[in-house]
Design a protein around this nucleic acid. Structure first.
Length: 650
RNA sequence: GGGCCCGUAGCUCAGCCGGAUAGAGCGACUGGCUUCGAACCAGUAGGCCGGGGGUUCGAGUCCCUCCGGGCCCGCCA
């Protein structure tokens, strides 16, 4: 509701400034720090002072005098050196909130593609992958709640070195046959087994560099798609993909489609992109220097103005004729925008328990008709900030091909890594060098097998939560307690991954992550549970939830909201639209998390201060009940966007 | 050598396009359970917003510079 008023005020003021002063400046609208100053503040007089060469105070007085009669605004006054403070008409506002809010926006048919997770299918997922998936999934939920059409892609690199190394481990190091591996893959934590194997293979390479030949042989075999080793590659990658899907589903994360590298190869996406790149002279054939014999993209294409040395150019096709990763990425990005002129075939991989189907790419036509994938208007790639250089090259590729607008709408949704706190390293039994001990955090490494596995963390969180639930609700059935503990655990985890802004490095610490108090997911869940408890208690007492639009009218709202206390609480509760809008604009899911926490704080003070059910005065009781149900719906909505469930009790 | 990010309370972090007295959680210290159950609430202490210049009516926020920390920059994949 709040953002509707904001919008209305902004429009009116902008129009007024344009007409009255013939200047077109961006009008700022703030929320005063002190409640006594009202709900909205315009510093526009300061901005105008320059243009008009008049004191801000004089201008402000004039604007305030002219700008009366904005719907929902009770008063305007000049304050300080030239602020214009606005007060919202409380009765109007409260009465409006009794009506259901209109949908955020009309879907316009344009599709937004969000790609996230993208874990190499060769080992168990770790906490860094969780940050990626939770950020991506929450951003998707934000967009969908705002009315956008979103397609969620999870790209699977099932033919890369990482898979090859594990396959080489099975084949060369452990001398295992496909059938044996297939048997192993039936066990629950096959992804853990591969985690260890991957680390062993990497260590083996380090000591026996000549063994790196295995990697090359394995890669070639996988690429050709035929033979025992290729088959092994499929077994490993397919099984691990399922493991990752399961891990993510524990956190409520689902995808629409899994485009796979194997199909990008088999359907020759690159060949098509290569033709385009050559034709439009986005890349050129280097005839001298260190890159002799390669097709390269000039550094000037992706470097800022400054002189791009020849050194900066990026090899796209090697002198042996094979394509680099970036090259394939360009082809893939073209497909996402529907610019490649080619598409995958699709097979329905599974149906989630929610009923939502998940599709996977395939290289042969299928009978079942699939939805149309790709061809997005805007593309968000959720990839950690270490890859920003490569992401820049990909975007430069689009630009060099003449796809200026698509380049603009290719967004590297970057975030910083999740590292480990020294304390957590110690808990995990990781030996640190003297140098590392002095660092604030230590980077995880899949190659070294150094890190915290996602499923381990989730399990540990559930166990911790279960102890609390057991202590509080010993009478509840065990499976029910486990369900509640799971909801609390995943709520805690998702919130933990979201509370930091994207470009802050998370130094993961068990003690912190396992905390359920203070600024955490369970704190917010608890507020929602409390709101529900009040309403449930009411019904247990034989009373029914009233029809508030009949019980409360504009006058009643005015009377109740005359209390600053109530008014501030309601105001805080009604800002969810504003918070989500801001979070989408800045691409920052942490803003929603922050808001959820503030909302819960507001409700908890309300809860503590005002006994609802025992209130004697009828109108006040109606009002308190309405506040409770309004808080509840706002908490539910916000937690829904964060992908956090609300337990039945806590 | 080049690029990106970070530096705000003891610790972990917020701070929307530059705006009024810099906020939260944890930790520390005081208090509060008479079931709408305390995974909560109320309060106290704690800040040269890394240093220095500049732009501005106004800078934690923008520009320059220095210091400290992190990440990235192969025809590997």
């Amino acid at each position: 509701m709040f953002h509707l008023i904001e919008k209305r005020v902004l429009e009116r003021v902008s129009d007024y400034i344009r007409n009255r002063y013939s200047v077109d400046i961006p009008v700022g609208l703030e929320q005063p720090k002190q409640a006594a100053f009202g709900e909205l503040a315009l510093p526009v007089a300061f901005q105008l002072a320059k243009h008009l060469k008049q004191p801000p105070k004089v201008i402000a007085a004039q604007i305030a005098a002219d700008l009366s009669g904005i719907e929902g605004i009770a008063s305007l006054e000049v304050a300080g050196n030239g602020y214009i403070n606005l007060r919202i008409d409380r009765a109007y506002y409260g009465e409006r909130l009794l009506q259901p809010e209109p949908p955020a926006r009309e879907a316009d048919g344009r599709k937004i593609i969000v790609e996230h997770t993208n874990i190499n299918p060769n080992k168990a997922a770790h906490i860094g992958h969780l940050r990626n998936a939770v950020l991506g999934d929450t951003f998707v939920r934000m967009l969908r709640s705002a009315g956008y059409r979103v397609e969620v892609q999870n790209y699977i690199d099932n033919t890369g070195v990482q898979v090859a190394d594990v396959v080489a481990g099975f084949h060369f190091l452990e001398k295992k046959r496909v059938d044996e591996v297939r048997e192993l893959a039936k066990q629950d934590r096959f992804d853990y087994l591969c985690w260890d194997l991957y680390a062993r293979v990497s260590a083996y390479y380090a000591e026996n560099p000549e063994a790196l030949k295995w990697r090359q042989d394995t890669l070639h075999a996988i690429e050709s798609g035929a033979g025992e080793i290729a088959e092994l590659g499929n077994v490993v990658a397919d099984r691990i993909v399922m493991a990752h899907l399961n891990t993510m589903l524990r956190l409520g994360i689902e995808y629409d489609v899994l485009p796979r590298e194997s199909e990008i190869l088999h359907l020759k996406f690159w060949a098509t992109a290569f033709e385009q790149l050559k034709e439009r002279k986005a890349i050129y054939f280097e005839t001298e220097g260190k890159n002799k014999g390669c097709w390269v993209m000039p550094g000037s294409a992706f470097k800022e103005e400054g002189e791009a040395a020849e050194d900066d150019s990026k090899v796209i096709v090697r002198s042996n004729g094979t394509v680099t990763y970036v090259g394939k990425d360009i082809a893939y990005q073209l497909w996402k925008f529907g610019l490649l002129g080619k598409d995958f075939y699709y097979r329905r991989l599974l149906d989630y328990p929610s009923g939502h189907p998940l599709w996977v790419s395939t290289d042969t036509p299928q009978e079942e008709k699939a939805p149309s994938f790709g061809g997005g208007y805007k593309v968000y790639n959720v990839i950690d900030s270490r890859q920003s250089y490569l992401q820049n090259v990909v975007v430069a590729g689009l630009r060099a091909l003449g796809y200026q607008e698509q380049a603009e709408r290719s967004i590297h949704f970057s975030y910083e890594m999740v590292a480990l706190s020294p304390r957590t390293c110690a808990e995990l039994g990781i030996e640190l060098s003297e140098e590392d001990k002095r660092r604030p955090y230590v980077e995880v490494s899949g190659r070294k097998g150094l890190g915290v596995k996602a499923d381990d963390l989730i399990d540990k969180l559930i166990e911790t939560a279960l102890r609390e639930v057991d202590a509080r609700h010993p009478e509840a059935p065990p499976e029910e307690r486990r369900k509640v503990a799971t909801q609390i655990a995943t709520g805690a985890l998702r919130y933990f991954m979201l509370k930091y802004t994207r470009n802050s490095v998370i130094a993961f610490d068990f003690q912190e992550a396992l905390s359920f108090e203070g600024e955490t997911g369970p704190y917010v869940q608890y507020a929602a549970v409390r709101a529900r408890n009040i309403l449930r208690k009411l019904e247990e007492r034989g009373e029914t939830l009233p029809d508030f639009s009949k019980e409360l009218d504009c006058e009643a709202m005015g009377r109740q909201l005359a209390s600053d206390d109530f008014w501030q609480l309601l105001l805080a509760a009604s800002k969810s639209g504003s918070a989500v809008e801001r979070a989408i604009a800045s691409g920052e899911p942490s803003h929603v998390a922050k808001y959820a926490f503030q909302l819960a704080q507001a409700f908890n003070t309300f809860y503590h201060e005002y006994p609802v059910i025992h209130e004697e005065n009828r109108e006040k009781k109606m009002f308190l009940l309405w506040m409770t149900s309004y808080f509840r719906s706002q908490l539910e909505r916000t937690l829904g966007i964060l992908g956090i469930e609300i337990p039945d009790y806590m």
